[in-house]
Amino acid sequence: MENFNLAFLNALHLLVSLDSEILQYAWRSVYIALISTTLVIVVTLPMGILIAENNFRFKRAIIIVLNTLMSLPTVLIGLVVYSFIGRMGIFGSFKLLFTIPGIIIGEVILIFPLVLSLVIAALSRDNTQITKTAKALGASQLQTFLILIKESRYAILSSIIAAFGRVIGEVGIATIIGGNAEKYTRTLTTSIVLNINMGYFDYALAIGIVLLTLSLIVNLFMQLLQGSKR
């Protein structure tokens, strides 16, 4: 495959011509990553605060468990969720298999340990001091929670970026749960694999470049967000 040049040209063409298929896949990839990340952050922030301000021993045990969960292969997670939401599974009647929401469930499970451990790390630094100072100035429980997040915002934003990147580049869960149905659940990553299986390596590479470009744009945007909070 000396055709890196060709791949780059193809990628450029895809981007510039706003190829409708690629656009569709790109939109799905971003959508899934965005919603999954948001859902997980919303849950892990309060959890992280509770864990961070608690007993040291307890916290250590949790971190060990989380780190272990992060080694789960994505295809295994995909398989387990598949068995739950497939027709024969407990949640079969919700018809979540081969849908975007189904994929999101799998991705949420995937990034949950990652984000929680990052959030705990983000909050642990000056946690007691921040909480005490805020309370001394009269903060309510909610106000303390919010200011804790505000003070740790850079580290938290890093966790969000890490989670987003993990999901948008993920392929095992997206394939197994999504089924790679062209007009419904095909994403940038699953179409890369599809093209590899069909033997169209150059095209697969081009899609990969599109994915990276997308990721770059999102990260630039996040950086701007971080920067403006000076």
Binding site: I130, K132, T133, G138, I147
Partner: peptide, 10 residues
């Protein structure tokens, strides 16, 4: 309100 022993500025 309490002025704590070590100052943490936000």
């Amino acid at each position: 309100p309490v002025l704590l022993q070590s100052t943490y500025l936000f």
